[in-house]
Design a protein around this nucleic acid. Structure first.
Lengths: 244, 244
DNA sequence: ACATTTTTTTGATCTAGCTCAATTTTCTAA
DNA sequence: TTAGAAAATTGAGCTAGATCAAAAAAATGT
């Protein structure tokens, strides 16, 4: 497990495929057996790049397939009828997007790179093909999509709580997701803007900024621009339990 | 199509199975071929009853399987760490619940009857069994679960708008879902309390009540206790487009 | 390195919707 | 049918977070 971080920062000479990818335990192949992973591996396009602000797919366009971020992060957005953006989710390295096109075969959301991202792509037409000789793939996708549904419920619960709690939870949520994927859980870069955080949480960017300053003044976190360090995780966590 | 309503109100002598169920085009079998429906039909438990306030399944308990309401409606709720209830969704006749247990095999939510309900039940252990000889079932479930995900995004978008718009949208949403299932879209019973509506929409029951009165005073709807009639659907719909 | 733009911070006010409180209406069970 | 309980309505403040505004800091391109 200790080579996880190494392989994450250094480039190996052998091309990375699903079989030797350090994401294998988190990515689509999770739950598939050796042979099945091989079949998926054959159909995945690797090493796709998008730069900051570029779209990986657009709402309204035909389902592109499933996307796994290998590095960099992205935002998943939707637009209401007046064109107001809604940040539905942030996608961190190692995470998967694309479910928003799976049901209707038309993307419901737009995925935009928040910084340069490198991603793997399992194209839509190959998913059908795969599901014939690798039926458990569909099971895996179903699993993932229900996972997403569960986390939506958590978001809904959180959306009823105070702005302070939403921000505290947001920081802890990013931290946890990075930890699971082998990154530092206490120090990381918030690659999204205050505006995007606020939009996602349902508060204004001014409120996000004020709360971040408040947490800093209480020595819960330390922030230098987009770089964030959690100083008192326990206390930050306690925040969520308190009344109000 | 005209016999749809008849079969909905009268009881047929032949027992209703998936093959002759009037929900077949909305329920789990949708997307399956004749033979596959037959296989599902063999495994479904029909005619389960729950009375008002009784749970169909509980959060924390093992995945029961998928549930299709044949009559009556239910609420899907979750609880935060302080035991506060969150109404995640309302389930109308003809709709399906259970996805909240599919990923982890433990229910994430509690489903409670809002009035006497009659439901079909595809038990969890039979889903696995089915997915072996009826692989497209998993595809269908995946489809449904992604549909749910899409509608979650719509809910999130709505949750950013004013309380008035949320209530207007709620009424139109229930209306549309009833219409799709062959019920009257303009006159129906809101079987949930104002408290439950408010909880679901993220406003207090007082606010729900005030807004319902407002809509009534503007001749958009007519309300007698739980019975609701939409008088000016077009105008109610316009409400959603307006600024604010 | 510097000029321009974008993002973030901070302050001062305002308001939608909450809370608290008091009736009134509807539901429920004997 | 009726008493008691639960739900809904209506009114009157109150407050968390929005909005507006202006300065400071950071990012970006040349």
């Amino acid at each position: 497990m200790s080579d996880l971080n190494i392989s994450k920062t250094s480039t190996t000479h052998r091309p990375v495929t699903c079989e030797n990818c350090n994401l294998d335990n988190l990515c689509i192949p999770k739950g598939l057996d050796r042979q099945e992973i091989g079949e998926v591996a054959l159909l995945v396009n690797r090493n796709n790049i998008r730069h900051k602000g570029e779209a990986i797919y657009h709402a309204g366009s035909p389902f592109r397939g499933m996307i796994a971020l290998r590095s960099g992060s992205a935002k998943l957005t939707s637009f209401d009828q007046d064109g107001n953006e809604l940040v539905v989710a942030f996608i961190l390295p190692g995470e998967i997007v694309g479910f928003d096109g799976l049901a209707t075969q038309i993307h419901n959301c737009t995925a935009i790179a928040l910084e340069t991202v490198n991603y793997c792509h399992l194209p839509a037409h190959k998913i059908e093909q795969l599901s014939l000789n690798t039926p458990s793939l569909v099971n895996v996708l179903l699993q993932r999509s229900c996972d997403e549904l569960d986390s939506q419920v958590q978001k809904l619960l959180m959306s009823r709580r105070s702005a302070e709690k939403r921000v505290a939870n947001f920081i802890l949520n990013i931290s946890e997701r990075l930890r699971v994927r082998g990154y530092s859980e206490l120090e990381f870069r918030l690659s999204m803007s205050r505006e995007e955080i606020g939009n996602h949480l349902g508060v204004t960017h001014e409120t996000v900024s004020r709360i971040i300053q408040l947490f800093q003044s209480r020595k819960l976190i330390e922030v230098k621009s987009k770089q964030l360090r959690i100083m008192d995780k326990k206390e930050l966590f306690n925040y969520l339990q308190l009344a109000h």
